[in-house]
Amino acid sequence: MFRYVLPLVVPVSLAFLLSACGHDEPVPVAVRPAMVVKPQPSAQAMDSYPGEVRARFEPDLAFRIGGKVSRRLVEEGQRVKANQALAELDPEDVRLQLEATRAQVAAAEANLNLVRAERDRYKTLLDRQMVSRSQYDNAENLYRSGAARLKQIKAEFDVANNQASYSVLRAPQDGVVARRSVEVGQVVSAGQTVFTLATDGEREVLISLPEQGFGRFKIGQPVSVELWSQPDQLFSGRIRELSPSADPKSRTFAARVAFTAGSVPAELGQSARVFIQTADKVSLSVPLSALTAENGATYVWVVNANNTLKKVPVRVGAFGEKSVPVLEGLGPDDWVVAAGVHVLLDGQQVRPVDRSNRVVNLAAKE
């Protein structure tokens, strides 16, 4: 019996299996990541100047009195806190001066007590008409002179007391000792620079500008800054300060460039390069890896706000070492795929990321 039933069961089972397979949901296609960059100003239209990362504020620290340096408590490059002692002078001279002034205060107080008692005695005698008015006025003047003398000596004592505290040089705020100018045993005068402090806070780039064409540089002029520790990233900045005179040795003008890009990972002493526009109209550039060619035409892949790809034809200039200028076809706000362009398709959905593999929200950056 089973011989006759089996041929009927097998086709029916196969039919059920096929019908079940027909209702399977399609496997979703994974959205591939795509590294994107914005076109940068072409290096052919930019002048570059090497520079060094410096602190926005670099006060020169000095003793307010002169003397012999007895102790140096910090080294160059050391981080210090506000009110931390940096160096000390030999306190013997200021201590002796303070003691001498204290003795003068005691003498002035004793003299004031004496002339006060003398004045009071003359006042009693004047009331009894036993002394003349002129004698009493003389005693009164001596009392007033003694009171003024005591006030003067107390002020001198306060000055001497302050000078005793000036024998210790302290940091006005947090920062790093950028330069040291004295050694232990050296005699310094009041106001002579002992340390230069690079205070915590804003960082800038110090560059030197040549004499030729110096007039085209203006305070507030926008620039781009590249840190040598991060060569693939440009930070926006502006010229904050221009020296009014040239350095007598190098014949260059010092300029300070402030960052305008918010938080920038710039550390003191790092090398940097500042790019300044040379023409009114600057062509854009993209990495060489962003280009693709088809039928003799050059294209780049632009990511739209909805994270889809679009092949855009461009006209490029002479190829550089790492980038190529784009003369036509791109805008400064476009996002271009910078790697893996040979496997992309028009209209393909992607997940844009930056060079650090962080997701880029194109809609928010538009």
Rank of each mutant, 00 (worst) to 15 (best):
3 R>M: 01
6 L>G: 00
18 L>T: 05
21 C>Y: 08
23 H>R: 15
24 D>S: 04
27 V>F: 02
30 A>Q: 11
31 V>S: 03
31 V>F: 04
39 P>Y: 06
46 M>I: 01
47 D>G: 05
56 R>H: 11
59 P>C: 01
60 D>H: 12
61 L>M: 02
65 I>H: 08
69 V>C: 09
80 V>Q: 07
101 T>E: 15
105 V>I: 07
121 R>Y: 10
124 T>D: 09
125 L>T: 03
126 L>T: 01
132 S>G: 15
151 K>D: 15
164 A>W: 10
172 P>K: 12
173 Q>Y: 02
175 G>L: 11
182 V>W: 07
186 Q>W: 00
187 V>D: 05
195 F>N: 08
198 A>D: 14
211 E>L: 09
214 F>R: 15
218 K>R: 13
226 E>Q: 15
233 Q>S: 06
248 P>V: 02
252 T>A: 10
254 A>T: 13
263 S>G: 03
264 V>Q: 08
284 L>M: 08
290 A>T: 04
292 T>K: 00
295 N>C: 00
297 A>L: 06
297 A>G: 01
297 A>I: 01
298 T>D: 02
310 K>H: 11
318 A>W: 05
330 L>C: 14
331 G>I: 03
333 D>C: 00
348 Q>R: 06
350 V>M: 11
357 N>W: 05
358 R>I: 03
361 N>M: 01
364 A>Y: 06
